[in-house]
Amino acid sequence: MNQTVMTQTLLSVKDLSVEFVGHKSTVHAVNGVNLRVNAGEIVGIVGESGCGKSTAVKGILGLLQAPGKVTGGSAELTGHGDLLSIKNKNLRKVRGASVGYVAQNPFGSLNPIYSIEEQFRNILKAHGQPSAKNVARERARAMLTSVGIAGPDRVLDGYSHQLSGGMAQRVVIAMAMLLEPELIIADEPTTGLDVTVQRQILDLIRDRVVDSTRGILLVTHDLGVIAQYCHRVVVMYAGKVVEAGSVETVFLNPAHPYTSALLGAIPRPGHELTRLLGSVPDLRVVPTDCSFRPRCKHAFEACSVSPDLREIAPDHLVACHLSERVGHAAS
């Protein structure tokens, strides 16, 4: 993967916390997450279900459903200030214009009662851009062509239910990019799609950032997607970032036992699968120790104190006490 030299920060998330407050208990879904997306970069957030990766990006975008609530932190979008403190109405303007969002299920993002063309026009209207019929259609057509749709007119005149999953996701990506936002946040954009279609979509998303000032935050549970498409990766576990850094560093020299276990759980002929025992911790209790401790085969005394995320090498952050032991590599 090409290392990008541009270092202009697009998005900077600091200490993001999200809670789901219930009658009897509060789920601490995201606990102090830090991450950064630079221009020209694809940053992946990876983790298993319940680790808080989707919740975190929904929190950044102000898309959390009650009882979910951002309880702390900031998400600075360069040129627009802290997304978390923008009022609802203005946030809607920023979403779409400056941040595009692609959700996992494309059909959930498309309105079944409007034609695709009308939905493109509605986006332009909502953001006060020229939306005359011919103008809008021309822009939509250009955008659909750029996401690899060969017959854009047929798609524009049709409705979402006439599209295959892959086509619908292309349309959603085209919509997310219509206003040319600097940042695109894609939450499992290819999870429901077939493998031969998945790669087309990912290529498409990547083509948006190569040699550009744009950036992409990609949420996925698929390590292959991260390895092949992302520049940097953020590994989450139990609502926290446990490891972050360039993809090469993290994947080839994982420093957190959880990252190692995840990489070892991918079936490869001739390799014994890593058996990560136990299950994710109950997020209703705020742990004082390392949340991975009960499942970690390297756990020792120091793990009774929750480790901080610290830099162990340039652009390689790990939240693990093992990394403090000189010369130790987790395996």
Binding site: T196, V197, Q200, Q228
Partner: peptide
């Protein structure tokens, strides 16, 4: 062959040949 090439290796330095079938299923 296309199905195999759509597999994404978890080794960032290894990339499989990129074969694409035309269009959707």
């Amino acid at each position: 062959r296309a199905l195999l090439s759509s597999r994404l290796s978890t080794d960032p330095n290894e990339s499989l040949p990129r074969l694409r079938l035309i269009g959707d299923i």
